[in-house]
Write a protein that binds this DNA or RNA. Sequence first.
DNA 1: TGTGGAGCTTCCCATCATGGGAAGGTCAAG
DNA 2: CTTGACCTTCCCATGATGGGAAGCTCCACA
Lengths: 144, 144
Amino acid sequence: MNIGEASSASGVSAKMIRYYEEIGLIRPMGRSGNNYRVYGEEEVHILRFIKRARNLGFSLEETETLLKLWQDKSRESAAVKEVATAHIGDLERRIAEMQGMLKTLKHLAHCCGGDNRPNCPILDDLAGDGTPVPAARKKMRQTA
Amino acid sequence: MNIGEASSASGVSAKMIRYYEEIGLIRPMGRSGNNYRVYGEEEVHILRFIKRARNLGFSLEETETLLKLWQDKSRESAAVKEVATAHIGDLERRIAEMQGMLKTLKHLAHCCGGDNRPNCPILDDLAGDGTPVPAARKKMRQTA
DNA sequence: TGTGGAGCTTCCCATCATGGGAAGGTCAAG
DNA sequence: CTTGACCTTCCCATGATGGGAAGCTCCACA
């Protein structure tokens, strides 16, 4: 199997497959006489593993750790869970951060006329013009 | 005011201030005799605007647009709202994506013993071993 | 007056994961 | 034999930020 085939079989672009090899995430592939990389089912399986890990948001470094654990038949599942748990915490932190932005933005957008007049609470907020926008007298118990 | 002072007054690092100047986000600053950049209240205000926009997750490109709108006294607030709304959509998409990952990961982590045995549903899932993990017989009506 | 340290300047490099594209070799079908 | 689809390596770009070196300036203190 050439790289193109391995690519479509795994969902990882040829570019990325070469890159993963370069950074040592996957072993350098054997080459056929024409210097083309040669892949087998085994390698495609590994690539799919990587793809799936990336889809779940794991960094390449975390993916490498998981890959090693996967291939280590005497691993302790605790080690795997630890990586996953750390990533979960990371995602939660990032989601919370974005939700904070979202909340503020939605409020600002809600307060903005969005018409042909220049007056705009969004810009006022960005400019730090005193009050962080009049108020939100809804049932939001937000203070920050 | 030198760059260090402008930096602490605005919360934007000196490094970034120079960078913003380089990419044309802010006008090149005047220099004093010693070739040091000189800042005034006006500039600090602009830097704070940028800082705030960045804190709300706007890209530098979006920030530039907002900055121009801010300085354009004859803007239409609709233009500002449009930028904000697009960004809101963006955040919502990204949050949804991460929440998808989170859901899957939490489920997998929940199913993983996290002990000293090698058996691990997290790795099984990444490896794509058939069933995407036994099941979740909870009240989740998730199918994807 | 000299000196040390803090602060400024520019310039280059690294990050993280990915894509684009050029220049050139290879292979298979027509 | 040509054409086009592959493959190879190599370099560059992204976005926003930080690190650090080499060399300048400035101020305060002895």
